[in-house]
Design a protein around this nucleic acid. Structure first.
Lengths: 254, 254
DNA sequence: ACCTGAACACCGTTCAAGT
DNA sequence: ACCTGAACACCGTTCAAGT
């Protein structure tokens, strides 16, 4: 949701300087008009990256690992991406594209928001080294724009007023991106040691004093059974309820 | 909330092997009984780390930067911390200790949860290189335990039943840690380029097509005015409302 | 008992050179 | 036009050596 690359557009594409202040990051790459066609392009690099980070045991993403996986020099990617963050944004935007594609725009507004939230969460866990950065980047790509539009649409269809549409959009987005990103981090850290992914507490409640922490002691078993996916889903439901409450407030209030 | 270090206890402290499966990470350090007293100990390293990461322009945390700041060899810290994650957890636990300390346990339950959430958020932004990892670690320290106890207590005081106490605890914790951590990441990324921190959109809405994205186009100004702290705070309120709704449901339902 | 410093295996990124 | 490979400035971490 935050970092914006100063320039992400077609590195060294020669033509077409980016219009003032705007950044763009289409999936396309300038092709050599003929002869010795390139081995790499943005889309296939993104695909290979996602495949790499989805394989268990591979930790975080690096150009060296990716180069080895694609049989190419680690520095070759700089022909197609300005830096690592640029690649990251392209991968995140692909994930966002896939997530929006999962929502049926004819479904009720709350189903749409639920589906989008779930799809995002699942992708962050499936591609942890990419998902972990979900909350940290504005991709400025088609996936992100499509996602924003779908959320705004759902909020409007719920019956929200303009200012509330944007306010609740912000809450929803902030929650989904933060929590899905954190879930990615969770998987990324756990994959390293090979532990069950869902459990929120991996045994942190070892020894605790019933005198100083009576409630932790009392709820110990329940705490250890907390599961991340359920916690995430409950959070989404609470936001959906908040939307309904605001709409209901219009009727009662005025 | 996730990674647990396999061993974090007093590295090379000689005595006292850790009891089965548990990890501990007290702030204390074994002192030499006499003569040539050590220059470093856990607490002062944590203090120096927080001071370092709070200074603007310093990016992420590294032992080399910290060594330079403390006038000590970068590898000296391995006498007091098993690895970087151990130092990170110690810093996070300190932040959590400070945050719980900010809540008045005599205040109404919702004020307690609000204060705790705000204190956590503010610290993640003030110490971004540490805050960014808030959602990724279980510190197993006194700060974390104190925080959990305070949250459970507030949930119980709100009138929640045992299973709901833990369920709502999970939602609250997941939200606060994820969103505060994401806010830290936001600051960390922005500090690098020196931009205003609060704005959620740093100009990502550059050029957008009113045909394909009518709602984004319509709400453009409102979207650009979304501020992270407000979005975060609204999320907290929504969770507090959810707690109230569950309690109210007890009366109506049965 | 604690700290230093060389060393190793990684990173992102640049730039000259190849084809 | 695109890719290679050496090089630079960083990382975390280990281990022998100093005091």
């Amino acid at each position: 949701m935050t970092t914006e690359r100063t320039s992400r557009a077609e590195p060294r594409s020669g033509v077409a300087a980016a219009p003032a202040g705007a950044s763009r990051s289409k999936g396309r790459t300038v092709r050599a008009p003929s002869g010795s066609r390139p081995a790499l392009d943005r889309d296939s690099v993104v695909t290979a990256t996602l495949e790499l980070v989805a394989t268990p045991g591979v930790g975080s993403l690096s150009f060296r690992k990716l180069g080895a996986a694609m049989g190419v020099d680690p520095t070759a990617f700089y022909r197609h991406f300005v830096d690592r963050d640029d690649l990251m944004c392209a991968c995140l935007d692909r994930l966002e594209s896939e997530s929006v594609a999962a929502v049926d725009r004819a479904a009720p507004w709350d189903d749409r928001l639920r589906t989008l939230a779930t799809a995002t969460f699942e992708r962050c866990r499936r591609f942890p080294a990419v998902g972990v950065e979900m909350a940290q980047h504005t991709t400025s790509g088609p996936g992100e724009r499509g996602t924003i539009e779908v959320i705004l649409e759902a909020m409007a269809d719920a019956g929200l007023r303009d200012d509330d549409v944007v306010r609740l959009y912000g809450m929803y987005t902030n929650y989904v991106l933060s929590a899905a990103g954190a879930a990615g981090a969770h998987v990324l850290a756990g994959t390293h040691i090979g532990l069950p992914e869902d459990q929120a507490w991996l045994g942190g409640l070892g020894d605790l004093d019933a005198q100083t922490h009576p409630l932790m002691h009392r709820h110990r078993d329940r705490l250890e059974q907390l599961m991340l996916p359920q916690m995430y889903a409950s959070g989404v439901e609470v936001i959906l309820d908040a939307v309904r409450a605001v709409v209901a407030g219009y009727r009662r209030g005025r």
